[in-house]
Amino acid sequence: MLIEVIEEQSIPLTIVGLNGRMDSSNSREFEEKIVGLIQNGKTKMIVDCAQLQYISSAGLRVFLMAAKQLTMAKGKLVLSSLNDDVRQVFNLTGFSSIFEIRDSREDAMKSYDA
């Protein structure tokens, strides 16, 4: 799995792009990256899942952790561009109801405009 971090200066916010499969073999890497960003004060975050092909429960756990920590830090996490398989996992586990999910990266960025 590839993790790409982009600092969007205009708003400003942090966009984390995921590419590949996230399971227990690499979710820790994602966890460390996210925790590092939050500790560095990056509290407005979008995780772009357009290239995320698969997510296991270990990966969902990191999303959950990130959302809770960002909320505590008065920031927020918005997810964007989930493919159908990943979306189905979010629906089945009830995660759809606790995450802010947008159809595209642009929509996710707009959610920070207000």
Partner: peptide, 12 residues
């Protein structure tokens, strides 16, 4: 019915 996983929303 879709219910949320156990352990994260204590009032569900």
């Amino acid at each position: 019915a879709a219910g949320i996983v156990l352990g994260i929303d204590e009032n569900y």
